[in-house]
Design a protein around this nucleic acid. Structure first.
Lengths: 210, 210
DNA sequence: TAGCAGTGGAACGGATCATTCCGCTCTGCT
DNA sequence: AGCAGAGCGGAATGATCCGTTCCACTGCTA
């Protein structure tokens, strides 16, 4: 039971309920991050509540998934906006990627996509996110430190690759992903003149649809 | 009962059966590569045969999966052995990785693992594969072109990352994976003095168990 | 021409889930 | 103090999915 937005945990039934809101969301995050098609009951168990507690808050599984995914997307956007403040274009991009990997946001937004039908609102967020990343990539190019043939849509590909790395322990997973990312970031630099093979990724091409 | 090597398809029932052996295996490969937990019926459909044709050949789903996975592992080993013949240690390793990505072998061996219990024979093959990769990595190190802090177990991590990249079209998937691999290979080089973050991967640590 | 290897595909039974429902507990209000 | 009902736990329900079995049929093969 941890509370963040629950100002000085109210006592009694009301407060417990408010706290459960968060506990459930956190449990759902953990469970669905580990397995995108985990049963609802697993979330309830992890949260230490009954199934009713879930259905009281969300009309159905899909709504919970949507919520989780949208939250992730918003976090992604927030990180991108934060990165926009970094003056060095290269550091802005690399720092952004590191933070996204750190927060495991990509799994939330992509692995979960396809398990529900997105809202128009989410679509708008996705567009916004894409614009922000495009800006980061442009600035990295301008800094002269990013290899020429890397395009915006390489970013989701990179994140996809990082998200695929998994260990048993979440913390260890994080470490290994950073290791993988470090390799990719070095590859992103100007180490070689060899152009990347094949045409670059194109918008809806990667597995996550939207 | 004619067997796998069916040159110039025999006519009649016998020949049809022999041909089905291959058709089924190929269909299974395609189907399970696209979705590791596809139903048996999907394989039959793709192969254009009935379900019986499958069960005549394999006692159960698990056996088919095992067969597929072991075939993949053997191919992996064959590629590693082929790579061992390349005199340049760096080219041996990078060429090997490219061919493995090309053949989509990693998906076969890892994504499918966990869906069945491995045979001791497969375990032996896995050990052998590991040894061969270790040798490739050693030689790459000896060539002086591989960054110092890369270890054997980084290889499965890299392959895992590549396998995560997916497009709708198999051919396009292959292209994008090569792009991703190219980035990783550049990162594998000596571009930077920055050491890789965190401790390197350790044997059974990655998601595929064995 | 008899017999059977080889087959297609319907039918069966078990497993898994999302969702609903009911009875209980306490809280917060009167 | 008392009670209406917000919140909840978890069993029951009904649907779906899938591996496996079964049986009738076909046309080689001997």
């Amino acid at each position: 039971m941890s509370t963040t937005l629950d100002p000085a945990g109210l006592p009694g039934r009301r407060g417990q309920a408010a706290r459960n809101d968060l506990v459930i969301l956190e449990a759902a995050r953990e469970v669905f991050l580990a397995d995108a098609k985990a049963p609802i009951a697993a979330v309830a168990e992890r949260a230490g509540v009954g199934i009713s507690a879930l259905y009281r808050r969300y009309p159905g599984k899909e709504d919970l998934l949507r919520r989780l995914c949208h939250d992730g997307l918003l976090l992604f956007i927030a990180e991108a906006e934060a990165a926009a403040l970094e003056p060095d274009g290269w550091l802005a991009l690399t720092g952004f990627l590191r933070r996204v990997v750190d927060a495991d946001v990509h799994s939330l937004t992509v692995h979960l996509a396809g398990t529900f039908t997105p809202t128009p609102e989410m679509h708008a967020s996705a567009v916004r996110a894409n614009d922000l990343v495009a800006e980061l990539v442009d600035r990295a190019h301008a800094s002269g430190r990013l290899r020429r043939d890397v395009v915006v849509h390489d970013v989701p590909m990179i994140l996809e690759g990082c998200a695929a790395v998994r260990a048993d322990d979440p913390e260890r997973t994080r470490q290994l992903r950073h290791r993988h990312l470090a390799l990719l970031l070095d590859g992103l630099g100007l180490a070689t003149d060899e152009p990347l093979p094949g045409p670059p990724p194109v918008p809806g091409e990667l597995s996550g649809r939207w």
